[in-house]
Write a protein that binds this DNA or RNA. Sequence first.
DNA 1: ACCGACACGC
DNA 2: GACGTACGTGTCGGTA
Length: 876
Amino acid sequence: MKKKLMLIDGNSIAYRAFFALPLLNNDKGIHTNAVYGFTTMLMKVLEEEKPTHILVAFDAGKTTFRHSTFKEYKGGRQKTPPELSEQFPFVRELLDAYGIKRYELENFEADDIIGTLAVKAEQEGFEVKVISGDKDLTQLSTGHITVGITRKGITDIEEYTPAHIQEKYGLTADQIIDMKGLMGDQSDNIPGVPGVGEKTAIKLLKQFETLENLLANIDQVSGKKLKERLEEFKDQAIMSKELATITKEAPVTVTVDELSFEGYDVEKLLAVFKELGFNSLLGKLEGADEIVSEEVKEISFETVESITEAVFAAENSLYVEVLEDNYHTGEIAGFGLSNKNGNFYLPVETTLQSEAFKQWAKDETKRKQVYDAKRSIVALKRHDIDLQGIDFDLLLASYLLNPSESTEDFAGVAKRHQFTNVKTDEVVYGKGAKKKVAEGDVLGEHLVRKAMGIADLYEPLLKELEQNEQTDLFFELELPLSLILAKMEYTGVKVDVEKLEEMKAEIAERLKEIEARIHEHAGEKFNINSPKQLGVILFDNLGLPVIKKTKTGYSTSADVLEKLEHEHEIIREILNYRQLGKLQSTYIEGLLKVVHSDSNKVHTRFNQVLTSTGRLSSIDPNLQNIPIRLEEGRKIRKAFIPSEKDWVIFAADYSQIELRVLAHIAKDEKLMEAFTNNMDIHTKTAMDVFHVEADEVTSNMRRQAKAVNFGIVYGISDYGLSQSLGITRKEAGQFIDRYLQSFPGVKNYMEDIIVEARDNGFVSTVLHRRRYIPEITSRNFNLRSFAERTAMNTPIQGSAADIIKKAMIDMAARLEKEGLRTRLLLQVHDELIFEAPQDEIEKLKEIVPDVMEHALELAVPVKVEYSYGPTWFDAK
DNA sequence: ACCGACACGC
DNA sequence: GACGTACGTGTCGGTA
């Protein structure tokens, strides 16, 4: 096996981790963010690189040999924050548990240790991988030494090979130090030549190759000022280069062979992870599963073969297990039940046939606490069992307490709330192809533990909700909504399969023709769906100009192709091919795959516990992204039809709900006035941003205003806006500034909400939905900016989600009250789609807008538009 | 089995 | 001055 040495710059990675992550505390009040970041980075690189040898190098003491050259070296640096210093002993402890050697050397920096060992190892035939957060290290890169520099956060690593350096800077790795000599390095207090930055340095080095050669030929430099500067700071440049040069001859006392890595000691490492509170990482430790799973305490439970009323109590924690993700098709595997009578395992066959169970299930006075109410309801409903009286959903409660935490498996959710007496599903059932229902007692015990977990967490989670003022949000909004969603999903949407088959045949024909023409243009056959092959055809063979690159090659995305449209006829064909191909594979074939053949219906699943803003998502099939924008795609909607003869599809959507919410939250006078007067909001925005009258707003101005409004609603950056408008970032930034000047109330809101997020650590919606935004205090500009946009955007998007959710609940109640047969089928973020009997249309025209518009009262009017027809396509 | 590129909706 | 820039779902090709 090839020997591979990994050299990690310990100080640098710890620093990066510390500044990239929010200040985490473990339960003992020790800060752990740097250790945590260090660990995640380590796990990732061990997994990816599989090194045979490793060393983590640290800086030793304050002074190094460089200080004798320049006593100000690294001067002006801020003191290491105590919150970070206190973490270093834990980093060392962590490395020891990993069985990774660490090393420091008096008078030398970690860089020098790494440089020296890298060269030694390369000479001994090793592949060498260096990991640091400091770009200086890239100078070490050679054919066998690759330097990985952490990018965003700490686990995203950019690989610097000589080729990559050449591509990025147009320089060789050796020239990196010449560049540093010229431009200096503020963080190390290396002066360089004042006025010379990266751009100038690269330009000069391309011409003169080395600093020495440049300084010997200053007369050939163009630019008077530059010449003078180089002349004046000649010595300083030489010294700077010297400071930036990593020595490859440090008196390192370890040999490369001593650094062999034998793999970590699982038990030791587990102990360290536990001490630090790294619960989320426990599961990622290979071999840890067995150890973790051994730790659950013993429980006793009873397997109930024949159910009588006596097993149930007034309050019951019930866990319904469906192993498959898709509970519309997957079967129930069993039940766990926990109440004051004891802990019970109810095997699936007997339970589903038990009349006692059925009666208990539908008795709403018998209270049930569950995990994932919607899943439980639908799974039971398929067996004609009506589950009523649910007054707690652990999954839903946990989501409301922190929507950013993932909710993949019971054990993970429970553990977050300190219930650990349950194994993960993966441990019990296995994963991937090996996943299967556990046998009798093993299954029983697992399900009982889950029921016990629900029982255990019921009170504490209610209390937490109460403390967050989220009791109403839980009981009045999300829990009732889950019942409505269950019904919608179970009802399903009827699909015109014949229509889809027709479209499939027609599109297949057209695709074939386009494909032939594309191959004709290209002069050869290739896979048009492969961006890689397409890139070769367009940019290598046809020689079209390269607009954008991805990290794997040429970009062939639609925005790139649109810019090339006039360069070659093939482009138009490819765009058409893509459009039709998307329709065919995702929407026609994809939809046909998930149609239930007995009913010709699709049963999506709405994920109620996924997004951090409070929106729903939809899968299997995703019915929230059915095409509408382009006419060709919109036709897909013709295949969505009512499930009963002579019924119609009735669709109602909120007009500009997010911007109305913004007007409400920000109390912006002009925005409120615009909505009160029922103005076209994009035209109004254009008038204010461009300072023109209504009749002077051109279509282009309106288009730009619309994009700005879009940006406000989705929290995009100036860069994002520049991309969508095809303008520069600077211009986009100016647009945003002008917008904010035009709507000072909005500007104030944006400023205030950021302060609020910083003070509280979270932002809230009108119905007290929360989203924590720890990165808001990050010292990393990117993370912080992103967090700020999140803080601005979440209350807007989240409150809009609150409103439509409330409308769904009110709507269900209203339909019930009016005795209508109309059924709610879908929610698509700002619209509700129903199927309805013809004779209820007139009634719906009145009540649907009424209910939706008054779900929550805002400071501005809320407007709903509706339409209906024989298919979803016609409801436009 | 997983990742990146791409494309659809809001 | 660079960083890398709404989210969620699904398909495909390419590689493991």
